[in-house]
Design a protein around this nucleic acid. Sequence first.
DNA 1: GTGCGATGTATCGGTCCGATACATCGCGGC
DNA 2: GCCGCGATGTATCGGACCGATACATCGCAC
Lengths: 212, 212
Amino acid sequence: MLELAILGLLQESPMHGYELRKELAAKLGAIRAAISYGSLYPTLRRLQAAGWITEAAETPATAEEVPALTSRRGRVVYKITAEGKERFAQLIAQTGPETYDDTGFGVHFAFFARTDQATRLRILEGRRRKIEERREGLRDVLARAAERLDAYTLELQRHGLEACEREVRWLEELIANERSGRAPTVPQLGTAGGRREEFSPPPTGESRKERP
Amino acid sequence: MLELAILGLLQESPMHGYELRKELAAKLGAIRAAISYGSLYPTLRRLQAAGWITEAAETPATAEEVPALTSRRGRVVYKITAEGKERFAQLIAQTGPETYDDTGFGVHFAFFARTDQATRLRILEGRRRKIEERREGLRDVLARAAERLDAYTLELQRHGLEACEREVRWLEELIANERSGRAPTVPQLGTAGGRREEFSPPPTGESRKERP
DNA sequence: GTGCGATGTATCGGTCCGATACATCGCGGC
DNA sequence: GCCGCGATGTATCGGACCGATACATCGCAC
């Protein structure tokens, strides 16, 4: 998952580790907390060893030789390689069970702008199926085992069930959107986040903005 | 977290691993998928080594000696020890940062029936604070970085923000409940799970039902 | 009688996290 | 002028947990 996320972000622009972590937090803030450095740096090394990314040396212009002795380590900027882009395309299109868990789905969804429509549909439907299963499980417990559980546990289940129902509805709308060809507007669902405009995904191809 | 969950469940009745996993799935189904055996069995061993749990031999009555050669391994039933109960009480009352993440909060909440009111309140408020922070983070991204992100990523954030707002409201109600002394009714929030009755937690002490 | 799904215990490699360490940079306060 | 301190930045280590896999038994339908 981390591998996919890093490759996806580096496709938008070269970055160093710290920056990657921040961008990741911004892009996936709805899904999970910031990634740990204990995962990030080893993964960067792994990706580099595999040839998916390379170091892009800092300060390309004046590289004067400050002899040695605390030699200014400086930050390490990574950029994606051609092979890395292929790898990303492969990872983003291939769906396994882990594609539908919370984190996996979140990461895939965050890169939907770089995903073809058929794959988007497949992922949304897989996710819906998974959430529906969870929902049924909760309904069962609530209906069949309620007397075995205390009021707090019950309340937890009830809250979880409601979240499932809500997510299924959300997914239904997204799926309907995808099916109807060029994505129309998602109806206003709530007050969340102030003014809500359009929901029209960009044509699947390019990055929308190079960094300054 | 697993340690806490196991200790909590074994407090209700002795169980073997397989059973533990199923009960855990029922109790925490709203929070997370079933626990992996790759975590469960090593943890059981660790708890046993620490003296928090012990093996309670199966088939206590007729223990005839089937000599050897495929000697019927049979299931291993664990029960909690007095030290284990102390350990549970300590774990349930002590709150760290991990108490407020999704899994940590879920496990603590699931054992609220065995938690004193002051601790319940502390945990609910800590969780609320954490979700409020996540909410503010999402609002910031949505307000300040919206133009940098594609429509799908934005939609993900928006959905996440809505979930945060909803959870904060849920927590508010639970907190109000706790504060008002003996827990009153939580108002009907939605249609989830059919008929919704009372929400009155049992007196904090004992298990409500021994297994048959 | 036999195959098969549920029950049951167990291990292994891999991913990711949280704590920790350490170094530099810019800036405000004294 | 300089000192501290928060943000920036790279890095490692132990531990928690997962997913795949293996293997054995039980009950029951065919």
